[in-house]
Write a protein that binds this DNA or RNA. Structure first.
Lengths: 209, 209
DNA sequence: GAATCAATGTGAGATATCTCACATTCAATG
DNA sequence: CATTGAATGTGAGATATCTCACATTGATTC
């Protein structure tokens, strides 16, 4: 990004704080901002009619939380909310659009974001349709290890309910599978502290159930 | 699109025929082509481990069937195949990329495609997770009426198995729901001929199950 | 038009997952 | 540190959907 672009983007930027649980983007509404996460963590999820939701991904600092349907109607196909207290920076959507149109250097990055999102959707979809509960939980933990906490040991920043929504199943079933995995010494879980003891096995379960 | 762009795109174009059932794109592979459908119909679907698949959308002539993850690794996140005998035109992916980078006029259109795809994914996902079989079948028929055949009366170009995969359920269950809907005079179905008798009711079922 | 194969319809039992109810643990607060 | 409310764990019955088996229909070929 050039200095000029940077200026345009951040000239009248606003910083905002979100409390844990607070909604950031609401599915079905339009937004005039891109929201760049500075600290904390957000979840991006698809809302159903009943008050359930399905978590697509967890977003960490220094990424845009989501991108509205730009060059269309600026609507949001998903909701987002903070999972822990977070701070973010609002970027004007019009400014963002003109930067995208302004230089071809920025297009590949935008397209990559869309690719990523589609890949994520495909994964989540196959998960829910083809895999049993064990495989879905295994998959969720592999996601946490490989793409969220980047370590086999971590402190969960999300609740069991969120974990359930990430795996696309009920909280109760999630608890039961978690107990199974503890029993089989695949995971060590004490409260929010998690250690993946047998990643190979987790991968096997994620694949074959 | 300018004439120059048009020339670049179609200079060494190739036309190809696909038999019904034939695979066009294979999930997990890369492709050097964009494939533009000239006649017939294609299904775009996500493959699971077991030989099941979930249909994301049906593509009709004069649209690109799918777009590989350009500016990334040109991989496909989905598979596609012809549902009836079809003819398509292969467009070189490199040429397409340079056109996208060449003029800002083409960016909004590309971005809209991504937006559409994401919207589609969100819908399909909510469908499978939150809705019961009746609602999913109702939803599938509304999709066929509103976005595929553009009429309350049409001749199905897909099998019951495809219909099941579009609704994300088993072929047998699909048959049973179809019989229910015939019984309740919501649909009139004779072989491949379909008439939606009560669209309001269909919409209600799609919403509330 | 009889024979054969694929597509579709239907019933009943099997199974995975959810729901409800309650027990337990954990965290916050006075 | 006792109390309260929220988050989590667990059991058992309820339920939706699938699977398997078979019947029926439709399409194709000789």
């Amino acid at each position: 990004m050039t200095d000029k672009e940077y200026d345009l983007l951040y000239s009248n930027k606003k910083e905002v704080d979100y409390k844990a649980g607070e909604t950031i983007y609401k599915q079905g509404t339009e937004s005039k901002y891109l929201i760049f996460l500075l600290s904390g963590m957000a979840k991006v999820y698809v809302e159903g009619d009943n008050n359930k939701n399905f978590i697509l991904e967890l977003v960490k600092p220094f990424q845009f939380i989501d991108i509205p349907s730009i060059f269309d109607n600026d609507m949001l196909y998903r909701s987002s909310s903070a999972v822990v207290d977070s701070r973010a920076c609002l970027v004007d959507l019009q400014a963002f659009k003109s930067i995208i149109l302004g230089s071809k250097n920025n297009i590949p990055r935008l397209v990559k974001h869309f690719n990523h999102m589609q890949n994520r959707y495909s994964n989540r979809l196959t998960n829910v349709i083809y895999k049993n509960m064990e495989a879905r939980i295994a998959d969720a933990f592999l996601y946490l290890v490989n793409e969220v906490y980047f370590s086999r040991e971590f402190t969960l920043t999300i609740s069991r309910t969120d974990l359930a929504n990430l795996a696309g199943m009920s909280r109760e079933s999630t608890s039961r599978i978690l107990s199974e995995f503890k029993e089989q010494e695949i995971l060590k879980i004490v409260g929010k502290k998690v250690e993946v003891l047998d990643k190979k096995q987790l991968e096997h379960i994620a694949r074959f159930g």
